[in-house]
């Protein structure tokens, strides 16, 4: 009971860098995330998710492949989250797993449409961009830089956009 309370407090204090209860993350502790990324990147390539062709095929409704990948991923993640919540499984740091609640904004409509259009043109959502570059499709570096530029412009004009 007391641990869960202290965890809650810790989350509220999320901007604090000097967390008393756990030591500051060292550079080495980040390598586990890199390792998870490596597995993820291999899957992206091996299941051809990074392929522009697969994206065209998906949006033309000519193949089940991509729907199968995304559908299975959602299902597996959903069951996993259900199990974590049901049995109150703690993180490796013995924290309570905490999920943010997303709130609706018009950005999900407008931004969603804009991203969708870009997705079919580039054949990539942000994750595959990194895997495409790693795979040696070097022009995608331009795509990534432009995506960073797009993100920056969003930040710049954010207050003027409908949300």
């Amino acid at each position: 009971m007391e641990t869960s309370k202290s965890n809650k407090v810790r989350h509220q204090d999320a901007m604090c860098t000097n967390d008393s209860a756990k030591p500051e993350a060292s550079i080495f502790s980040y390598f586990i995330y890199m390792l998870i990324g490596v597995v993820f990147g291999v899957v992206f390539v091996k299941a051809e998710i990074i392929s522009w062709f697969r994206i065209q095929e998906m949006f033309r409704l000519h193949s089940f492949h991509m729907y199968g990948v995304i559908g299975t991923a959602v299902l597996v993640a959903m069951i996993s989250i259900f199990i974590i919540k049901k049995f109150s499984i703690k993180t490796l740091q013995n924290e309570t797993v905490y999920l943010e609640t997303k709130t609706f904004s018009k950005g999900q409509l407008y931004g969603g449409l804009i991203f969708g259009i870009g997705w079919a043109i580039t054949g990539a959502c942000p994750g595959p961009l990194f895997a495409q570059i790693g795979s040696g499709f070097l022009p995608v570096i331009i795509t990534l830089l432009s995506a960073i530029g797009g993100t920056w412009l969003y930040g710049y004009v954010r207050e003027k956009l409908p949300h």
Binding site: K102, G107, F115, I117, G118, W119, I121, A124, A147
Partner: peptide
């Protein structure tokens, strides 16, 4: 590359995720 990438970056952030 440029236009497509721009839409991916702008759109995902506006939508709050990809």
């Amino acid at each position: 590359f440029v236009l497509g990438g721009f839409m991916v970056g702008f759109g995902t952030r506006y939508a709050g995720g990809c």
